Computed example of a mutant assay.
Amino acid sequence: MAAQTLLALEWLVRTGRAKRASTIRLRRVKNKVYAVFTYEVEPEPPREPEAVIVFDVNENTVVAAKVDLIAAVDRVARWKRMDPAPHIHLHL
């Protein structure tokens, strides 16, 4: 787990999204000394979701599906154009 975190941090430093801060803390635990490096990381900009994962849980089965949001909205819009809503007439 720690190795994956170090690889991710190294990738952020190489791409220029993280910089090492000027402070290094030293910790002594029993007979060992640990160096704690601090990094300044730029936050990622928020992204719009492209898809959602849908779960249907029944008594004996679990179904999972990935739904593409743009394709689903497009399909609903096409369906609505094919079957227009009936006109409602009100007489008072």
Score class of each variant (00 low, 15 high):
Glu50Trp: 02
Lys19Thr: 10
Asp74Glu: 15
Ala3Gly: 06
Thr5Gly: 05
Glu59Pro: 00
Val73Ala: 02
Trp79Gln: 14
Val13His: 00
Val57Pro: 02
Ala8His: 04
Glu44Met: 09
Leu92Met: 10
Leu7Val: 10
Arg75Met: 04
Thr5Tyr: 14
Val54Cys: 00
Lys80His: 08
Ala18Ser: 12
Asp83Met: 13
Thr5Ser: 11
Arg81Trp: 06
Leu7Pro: 00
Asp83Phe: 12
Pro49Arg: 12
His91Leu: 15
Arg25Asn: 14
Ala21Gly: 04
Ala51Gly: 04
Pro45Val: 11
Ala85Val: 12
Thr5His: 05
Val63Cys: 04
Tyr34Met: 12
Ala85Asn: 08
Ala21Met: 12
Trp79Asp: 15
Ile88Tyr: 05
Val62Trp: 00
Leu69Trp: 09
Val62Phe: 03
Ile53His: 06
Val63Lys: 12
Gln4Trp: 02
Ala72Gly: 01
Val36Gly: 06
Ile88Arg: 08
Glu42Asn: 15
Ala85Gln: 11
His87Gly: 14
His87Cys: 11
Leu69Lys: 13
Pro43His: 00
Thr38Val: 05
Gly16Ser: 02
Arg27His: 04
Leu6Glu: 12
Thr61Pro: 01
Arg28Asp: 02
Asp83Glu: 07
Pro49His: 06
Ala35Met: 07
His89Trp: 05
Trp79Leu: 15
Val63Leu: 04
Val54Asn: 05
Arg17Tyr: 05
Val54Asp: 08
Glu50Ala: 15
Ala21Leu: 13
Ala18Lys: 05
Ala21Arg: 04
Ala21Glu: 07
Glu48Ile: 02
Ile24Ala: 07
Glu59Ala: 15
Ile88Val: 15
Arg47Thr: 08
Asn58Met: 04
Leu69Asn: 07
Tyr39Cys: 07
Pro43Gln: 01
Thr15Cys: 09
Val13Glu: 00
Val33Cys: 07
Arg20Val: 01
Val73His: 09
Trp11Glu: 10
Glu10Cys: 12
Val36Phe: 05
Lys32Arg: 07
Glu42Tyr: 00
Trp79Lys: 14
Leu26Val: 10
